[in-house]
Amino acid sequence: MTDDAGVDGDAETDADDERGGDPEVPADPEHESEIPEDHPRYESLLTRHRIERGVDIGITSKQGLIAEGRGEAFDYLLGEETLPSADAAARAAAAHLLLAEHPVLSVNGNVAALVPGEIVDLAEASGADIEVNLFNRTDERMAAIADHLREHGASEVKGLAADGRIPGLSHERAKVDVDGIGDADVVVVPLEDGDRAEALGAMGKTEIVIDLNPMSRSAQVAAVPIVDNIIRAVPNITRHAAELADASDEELREIVENFDREAALDEAERAIREGDLD
């Protein structure tokens, strides 16, 4: 899933009918608090609302709407739940972040729209920097996303300096801060473009990818592929980071070494191909 967002209201009605949801619940609430948490499609409705608002306030591109629809389809096939392998990946991600000398959380427009406060919480729990990185980059969007993250508690947001470049990329996502992603040893890249994921790996950086498609290039090249919805995955990494805060480096390294990325990808693909949607 890359730069995620939602699909149309007719599809929502059909999904409600399939899962026994309440057709009386509005598909387009003005505020996310209007979405009842016991609705069987709560996470889907919440995600769509946040992405739509992100477009309205200028932090999410319209292309992100299409990408989110693709991601939502994969989440539906996963049963809209965190697989045991995804939880293990989140724990491995937390261990990587706690062991890192300079961890960085990369944020694009969809990430900023979907989990701004959760990203700030993860940065605080792991000691990571936050850096904005966009494909459809403009000064206005960069500033709007940085402001949005600050409104949700971020004390510092990198990415505006753009005084470094990722080798091998010709588009705007090549631009990074030298003292941010440029200097990072571990990078969390949610909803990532495959070519940048490959380029960051070529630089020797440990990549933690959050992607609902286990067959995507980003997930395939990641040291830690977390095949899960970002609104579940980011808080899950934070929870594990808090639980592991007092763990020794030896314990953290053991978690990292015991994580089986191939098994995680295989379980996710198997769940998508063979899962029970009842």
Rank of each mutant, 00 (worst) to 15 (best):
H152F: 05
L191E: 15
A174V: 05
S170E: 15
E172T: 09
I181W: 02
K158I: 05
I166G: 07
A161E: 15
V186E: 13
L149D: 05
A144L: 07
G164K: 07
G182H: 02
P167V: 00
I166V: 15
I181L: 10
M142P: 10
V186N: 07
S170R: 12
I181Q: 09
G159Y: 02
V176L: 13
V189I: 13
V186R: 00
K175S: 13
G159H: 02
V176K: 01
K175N: 13
D183P: 08
H171Y: 09
L169C: 08
I181D: 04
I181Y: 01
H148R: 12
R173M: 11
A146V: 06
I181A: 07
D185M: 10
H148C: 10
I145D: 06
A161S: 14
V188L: 14
V187R: 00
L160T: 09
A144Q: 08
G159M: 04
V187Y: 03
E172P: 01
A161Q: 12
V157Y: 00
L191R: 04
E140L: 11
L191I: 10
G153K: 04
D185V: 06
I181S: 06
R150F: 07
G153C: 06
L191C: 15
V187I: 14
V186H: 06
H148M: 10
D147A: 14
M142C: 08
D177P: 04
H171L: 10
G153L: 04
D183W: 00
E140R: 12
I145Q: 04
D177W: 00
K158L: 15
V178T: 13
A184F: 02
A162Q: 12
A162R: 03
M142Q: 13
I166W: 05
V178K: 12
D183F: 00
E151Y: 00
G168R: 09
A154G: 08
R173F: 06
L160I: 10
L149R: 01
V176N: 05
A162E: 15
G153Q: 08
G164P: 02
E151F: 01
H171D: 13
G164R: 02
D163H: 04
K158W: 10
V178L: 14
S170D: 15
D139R: 12
H148K: 10
D163R: 00
G180K: 00
A154E: 03
V186P: 08
G164L: 07
A161P: 03
A154T: 02
I145R: 01
R150L: 12
I145S: 04
K158F: 13
E140N: 09
R141L: 11
A174I: 06
D139M: 10
G182D: 04
G159S: 08
G153W: 03
V176C: 10
D139A: 14
V186Y: 03
